[in-house]
């Protein structure tokens, strides 16, 4: 029997779904709505750099970003299959979804390494 790597993608989907559900609403609300609308004070460049400089902070952000992308990759793959009936484009969709998530994760690692 051909070994399936489906459980691996599902594990990423689950971990990413949970982590994004816990963290993203607060981060998005504070950084992308409350801050630009002036409801809370925007941290200075130095303060923001200091906040994310700790290796644990960067590791957390890497996990959050890469797992969120992998969560998207797995879920969106099936959204395309079921919602738009694109089963015949399977290989293209798999490359786009998982490939996109992996490329994004590598980019995230590269950016966070430099912080």
């Amino acid at each position: 029997m051909k070994k399936s790597n489906e459980p691996l993608w599902w594990a990423f989907f689950g971990a990413g779904g949970a982590l994004s559900a816990l963290c993203l609403p607060a981060l998005l609300f504070l950084l992308a709505l409350a801050m630009p609308l002036g409801w809370i004070e925007t941290p200075s460049f130095e303060a923001a750099s200091g906040l994310v400089h700790h290796p644990l902070a960067r590791l957390f952000l890497f996990a959050l970003i890469s797992l969120s992308l992998l969560h998207w990759g797995h879920r969106f793959r099936f959204t395309l299959y079921d919602g738009l009936q694109l089963k015949h484009l399977e290989s293209l969709i798999v490359v786009f979804c998982y490939g996109g998530a992996i490329v994004g994760s590598i980019f995230a690692g590269f950016v966070l390494w430099q912080l």
């Binding site: 990413g16 993203l24 923001a48 994310v52 969120s68 969106f76 994004g104």
Partner: peptide
């Protein structure tokens, strides 16, 4: 919703990139 999860993950990444 997964599309927006990915959208914000990327937006956050670009915000972090400005710090470099």
């Amino acid at each position: 919703t997964s599309v927006f999860v990915a959208f914000y993950a990327i937006e956050l990444l670009f915000l972090l990139r400005t710090l470099t």
